[in-house]
Amino acid sequence: MMLDERKIKILQAIIQSYITNAEPIGSRTISKKFDLGVSSATIRNEMSDLEELGYLVQPHTSAGRIPSDKGYRLYVNRLLESNDLGFILRHDLKNRLINEIGEIDQLIYNAARILSKVTNYTSLAIAPQIKKSQLKHIQLIPIDDSKILVVIVTDSGIVKNTVLRTEHSISSDHLNIINNFLNIKLKGLNIGEIGAEVLDQLIKEIYDYKNSILDILPTIVYALDDIEGIEVFADGVNKIFNFPEYNDVEKARDFISFIENKPFIIDMMLSGEHNDIEISIGNENAYDEIKNCSVITATYSVNGKTIGKIGVIGPTRMDYSNVISVVRSLSLDLNEIIKNYFIK
């Protein structure tokens, strides 16, 4: 059975009504609220067909229906009308990000906080992954005879500092030579590529300073390993209680438990195809705890390379048009701000 224009209009009306009211919709309600030019009886027959096709489900014995995951998927793919945020709101979102710029991790956290506030859903963000970044610069700064401050700068704007202790005193001249050597040899390498093999090769090439470089290099490699952990930000977790679907305490507890499980969030956020906007609806989600949720994410990148993700998670009865517009706008703002403020 094909979906003709009338069925599509009825399905769209049901989805829009359910997103707003969270109540199963009957044919009489659709007939009164939407000018579809057909009788209540005709709408009822069409709703029955839509249910048979899997686009609607009847949660109770009443005549009311609600959209299925398949219905939402059709709505998102074919029926969704783009929501224009308007210049003022877009400008406001960007200004909020710019006004709170600090370290790049703080920028991403602020973006997640703003996203939750504007959409009224739980927001999630993955901070830039340092091992997917390229090393841009290393600076070795002497503190005293046995301590050196190592400043690591990546092409994605991440700056990490670590203090290392040396067994031998290293003169400023030797430290400058080693500093310049490391920048020549390591610049442009992915952080994840800098390991034991690279270490051995560097020692061979700068043998005259073997003792000094043996003091410094292993500590730098260990420092890079220490900062590999992926940072996850979440905001507005308790907003799930605003939705009647989550009046069930067990259901709400499962949702919150999932959000607090960092490995699950990382897997969910990073397992997609890294498209402009990704939307996962209901049973399309891999985890049982969020089979009643939709997840909308967007990537942010540097020089065309994805370095993180930001998005929202909430009931499948989500205001898709608004959320997609806000998520897309914030991801574009992040791309621009990272490029202008962190990539030198």
Rank of each mutant, 00 (worst) to 15 (best):
E231H: 14
S321Y: 06
R78C: 00
N247P: 04
L149Q: 15
F255N: 04
L11G: 03
N322I: 11
I227S: 06
T297E: 10
V302Y: 04
E103H: 10
I177L: 05
S17G: 09
H91D: 10
L115G: 01
H60Y: 12
S321V: 12
D92V: 03
A125W: 09
E245W: 09
P142V: 02
K136E: 15
N95G: 08
K70F: 07
P218C: 12
A234F: 13
Q134L: 14
I240A: 11
I141W: 11
L97T: 01
F264C: 06
N190C: 08
G102I: 00
N99H: 11
T316C: 08
N303W: 08
K339Q: 12
V327A: 01
I206F: 12
R73G: 00
G272Q: 10
N161E: 15
L224G: 07
D319F: 09
H137I: 11
F233I: 13
I206W: 00
K187W: 00
R96N: 06
Y300R: 04
M268Q: 12
A234S: 15
L74V: 03
S82E: 13
V326T: 05
I266W: 04
E100A: 13
G314E: 06
L175N: 08
I259W: 09
E205Y: 04
K239D: 03
K185W: 12
E81T: 11
T122S: 10
K204I: 05
E5S: 14
D200P: 01
D92L: 08
I230M: 05
L214A: 00
S329Y: 00
T42C: 00
A22F: 15
G86W: 05
S31T: 08
G311R: 03
I10Q: 03
I178K: 08
I8Q: 02
I266P: 01
L56Q: 01
L214H: 10
